[in-house]
């Protein structure tokens, strides 16, 4: 897999979206699910890009191009690979990144996984001011709210967001993902509402086995 990851990272950095799509389809089984594609290929490719930056071989400008390419490839693959999400089900999830957070690739992946599990998804993108988030949640009343944090510096903003949203009347479940999600300290009193997903297979498992609707979540796994 490492070979594939590095090659894919190169294609992202070169802005070669067609090449990347073609390359992925040469070795990834058509039936391989999106969870596998994301967790074992695209995420490691983005992390590898991070490594290249750490060793001074690329700049943040390159990362921007790679991200845009990665984004396009993901959109394409979702449309052309995953099972055609039939009519969205009754479970509603709203996804966003906290204010000033710009890392959104993981969030977008989570949106796909929800969609493929038949959820009704509202993807609000990264950098959503808390006030807007509150309004949106109030209006749409999602069963679950998915948040992503990529930067350690956003943890206090995340806590603020969670404290506010967990108090909403309809008691939405909150699922947190992203690179620094495991550094997040679940506020006392909100633990039965909050679940931290370390990756997408974790999320997938949660949806299929632990989520019971409402806010009764099993947080033991």
């Amino acid at each position: 897999m490492t070979k594939h990851v590095e090659k894919l990272a190169e294609q992202f950095l070169a802005g070669d979206d067609r090449g990347a799509i073609e390359y992925i389809s040469t070795f990834l089984d058509r039936d391989a699910g999106m969870v596998e594609l994301y967790d074992s290929l695209i995420t490691p490719a983005m992390y590898y890009i991070g490594k290249l930056w750490e060793t001074n071989r690329i700049t943040v400008a390159d990362e921007h191009l790679a991200t845009a390419t990665c984004d396009f490839v993901m959109t394409y693959l979702e449309q052309n690979r995953g099972p055609e999400g039939d009519t969205p089900g009754i479970n509603k999830v709203m996804l966003f990144g906290v204010e000033e957070e710009q890392h959104y690739i993981g969030l977008k992946m989570a949106a796909t996984i929800f969609r493929q599990n038949g959820w009704n998804v509202r993807y609000m993108g990264p950098d959503l001011p808390l006030q807007h988030a509150e309004t949106a949640v109030n209006a749409w009343q999602p069963d679950v709210i998915g948040l992503s944090v990529g930067l350690a510096y956003r943890l206090s903003k995340l806590t603020e967001t969670i404290l506010s949203l967990s108090k909403m009347q309809h008691k939405p479940s909150i699922i947190i993902g992203g690179r620094v999600a495991d550094k997040f300290k679940i506020p006392i009193g909100a633990s039965n509402q909050i679940f931290i997903a370390k990756d997408l297979s974790n999320l997938d498992h949660w949806m299929k086995h632990s989520y019971k609707g409402g806010y009764s979540i099993d947080i033991t796994n």
Partner: peptide, 21 residues
């Protein structure tokens, strides 16, 4: 500019995808 560019690109991708479909 880069983030603006990214937003535009995302929108273009969505449109492109709609057209493709």
């Amino acid at each position: 500019i880069l983030s603006q560019f990214q937003k535009l690109r995302t929108r273009l991708q969505e449109t492109d995808m709609e057209l493709l479909k």
